[in-house]
Design a protein around this nucleic acid. Structure first.
Lengths: 171, 171
DNA sequence: TTGAAGTTTCAGTAATTACTGAAACTTCGT
DNA sequence: ACGAAGTTTCAGTAATTACTGAAACTTCAA
């Protein structure tokens, strides 16, 4: 593939990855920056990101900060150069673990809190509505807790210890 | 718990579940309606939903339709009664499977398409950038495909065959 | 075939979320 | 201590997404 076509392919991939990001509940720009950095051979500065994705400095800055916050991107500095560069985590399993942990923290833990606090109140056994509320929140709490534990354990394991095993068991 | 306090607890739970829904990429109203129906002893009509959640008919209608589309809610009719009632799937494992299938279809499959089509093009081996693009998209494609298969298999299994096993292996 | 009961649609509006760009701030070399 | 290089903040604005409510549509009984 000549480099002109390749540039197109790459830009297209990044754009589409951004769209996918949206449907994943991640903002478009953040997903695009992540894709861009994941495909960058060398650490890249804010200006390059802005240029490549045609976004403002503020936008680039805040999404880069978020990505660093997630742990998907690292700040890199070189001695004698004041600029900051950014570099994405490229290992797929590591990325998966980071994302799993973060989604767990942001999505599962708060749900589990709500479910556990709701299900641990005491309800009137003679009222079918309270009865249902109690049993339903309890069942959900237990399920989510289990899922949480499993996810947690998987995301802490080494790829080589988990994936072959899951594949064998579930493929 | 007296019924006044219970009403409050329940309303509060539904409201919070809605907020959680947002952070899960599901719209607030849809999550609230789902919670409301999941906690309803009997099938419930649109008017009741509108009243309970203080939302408009249009909003209730479209979110109920979406929930039916997901398979999380069923339409129920009684002979001799023109009204339609709605009833939520209450079994937690079944809910999980439905949601897993739907998220797979909406989030994973499109990503896999993009990754596979990108990684199957041919790239110039002498260009490090094309090299990286090829290897990165390939690694992602393989990982996502595996995750997809595992999730698919899990979501098709019976709870009793999967959960005890995962718990034992990962708890 | 009419109209009452019920459901769906959708144009207009509200609420939310994301982005811009310029100003404020920080850091470092001289 | 000053100013150039670089980074962050944030008020204002744009884009997206969700919601309302009334009109259009459907269904059924008389």
């Amino acid at each position: 593939m000549n480099s002109e076509d390749f540039a197109k392919t790459k830009a297209d991939f990044i754009a589409q990855w951004g769209t996918l990001g949206s449907s994943w509940g991640i903002n478009r720009t953040m997903a695009q920056i992540h894709a861009f950095l994941m495909l960058a051979v060398e650490p890249t500065d804010t200006n390059e990101v802005m240029q490549a994705l045609k976004i403002s400095r503020g936008n680039a800055n805040s999404n880069l900060r978020d990505l660093v916050g997630w742990g998907l991107v690292r700040r890199v500095t070189y001695p004698g150069d004041r600029k900051e560069y950014f570099e994405a985590e490229k290992d797929v399993w590591t990325m998966f673990c980071i994302i799993a942990r973060e989604r767990k923290r942001r999505e599962i833990d708060p749900a589990l809190n709500l479910l556990q606090s709701s299900s641990s109140k005491s309800y009137k056994k003679t009222d079918p509505e309270q009865q249902l509320f109690a049993s339903q929140t309890k069942a959900l709490a237990e399920f989510v807790q289990t899922a949480d534990l499993v996810l947690d354990k998987v995301a802490r394991s080494e790829e080589s210890k988990v994936l072959p095993f899951l594949i064998k068991r579930f493929k």
